[in-house]
Amino acid sequence: MSEKRGNNNNLKGLSLHVLPFSEIQYLSITDRIKKILKLILGNKVVILQGRLKVEEEIRLVEDTMAMIDHVKQFRGIELAVIEPDMKEANLIDKMKLGLANKLSGGANALTIIGPATVVKEIKKDPKKLEIYLG
């Protein structure tokens, strides 16, 4: 797997990796999770355009647990998904978003996944998201 230099930003030791949906679009579940976990093992916080499917999320949890047992110093991940609040949106806007999500794997959402040793906690409520670093 090659990392795009332009997608990496370093901020006082914190390394973010922006993963566009197009980079994982055609990968199988196994390869998607492998790619994400490989980045996390490199101590990177992954910002994924879109969101994982429910079966991918649970697979990510399973593979993470298996890795805690096998990789020294790996304690797991912190994960959060931010999606636009559509409660107040009208029907047309909801339909537009629904169609866009179908075509792009939920591209209006952002998924943040980081190693638990780097990201201590992600606190989420509908209006804000706070990331506490370890």
Binding site: V54, E55, E57, V61, L79, A80, V81, K124, D125
Partner: peptide
Amino acid sequence: QNPYSQVNITIVGNIVA
């Protein structure tokens, strides 16, 4: 506790799926 944790959402999502 805050119910909006991704783990809670993942659990419910998987049950519904």
